[in-house]
């Protein structure tokens, strides 16, 4: 039985910097997997490798058993891997609805040259809008539906970006610090949404997060990286007691737990 996603010993170098140094892990269907580590540990680089924005020099990444190494980022997205960005990357001048509709883009029928000539059919357009409205309700952002996203508060933008990723009907969601810069209440909301996504939609997720409390509370399994190297992996309790992990986080918020 192959895993949904399997990362096998990837190495990613930028000139002299080794951003990822032999990281392996796997994610199963419906699983909430977390990657944690100090600043600059290589967490975002792992995401960029998964979506093939960066090309690891060594190792392999398998999606449902077949390698995705060398695919274009848009082809990876089309497989069903959606993501949010550490620094929100929304289409700022567009409304919330239009941003989410953009997420539906890859689910549209027809090939590219047909799409150059035609718009979506009425029926397809309606279905897309319905889907988008469902997500907007789900994430409780209906008051902002018609506003340009650039004008929205940061916490809401984070939710819109999550919504755009959900609109792609993904099987795996990569969330890069979804609660960064949020207050306690916003963080709790975000945690609730993430859990709902898993419970109600059954979508597997990889969560990169600095907020230890959040990760320990909601993740099924955790991978800890430091300087691009894996230093511990397992259930939240196991990771919490791992001496290497404690050492890496000494003085950090990890000790408070």
């Amino acid at each position: 039985m192959s895993h949904l996603l399997e990362v096998d010993n990837i190495v990613l170098r930028f000139g002299g910097v080794t951003a990822i140094d032999g990281v392996s892990f796997h994610v199963d269907e419906g699983e909430l997997f977390a990657v944690i580590g100090p600043n600059g540990a290589g967490k975002t680089s792992v995401f960029n490798s998964l979506s093939q924005v960066y090309r690891p020099q060594e190792g392999d990444i398998k999606w449902k058993g077949s390698s995705i190494m060398g695919l274009r980022p848009d082809a990876v997205a089309e497989l069903g891997i959606a993501r949010t960005f550490q620094n929100i990357a929304l289409f700022g001048q567009m409304t919330v609805i239009d941003n989410l509709l953009m997420g539906r883009h890859i689910r549209m029928k027809g090939n590219w040259w047909q799409n150059m000539l035609w718009k979506a059919s009425k029926a397809e357009e309606m279905a897309n809008r319905e889907k988008v409205e469902d997500i907007i309700d789900f994430l409780e952002i209906s008051p902002y539906r018609k506003m340009p996203v650039a004008l929205l508060p940061y916490g809401i933008q984070k939710r819109v970006e999550l919504g755009r990723a959900l609109a792609m009907d993904p099987e795996l969601l990569l969330l890069d610090e979804p609660a960064a810069g949020m207050n306690l209440e916003e963080t709790e909301d975000m945690a609730r949404f993430i859990l709902d996504i898993r419970e109600e939609l059954g979508i597997a997720m990889i969560l990169v997060e600095h907020d230890m409390g959040l990760v320990m509370d909601i993740a099924d399994r955790i991978l800890v990286v430091d300087f691009g190297k894996p230093i511990g992996t397992g259930l939240p309790e196991e990771v919490q007691q791992n001496p290497d992990v404690i050492a890496a986080y000494l003085g950090g918020d990890f000790v408070d737990l």
């Binding site: 274009r72 848009d74 960005f85 990357a89 929304l90 289409f91 953009m102 590219w112 792609m168």
Partner: peptide
């Protein structure tokens, strides 16, 4: 798709846009 690319290439790629 072209509008999306004009706004943000990386985000457009993540949306499955070539």
């Amino acid at each position: 798709a072209m509008r999306a690319v004009a706004f943000d290439q990386e985000a457009a790629m993540a949306q499955g846009i070539n």
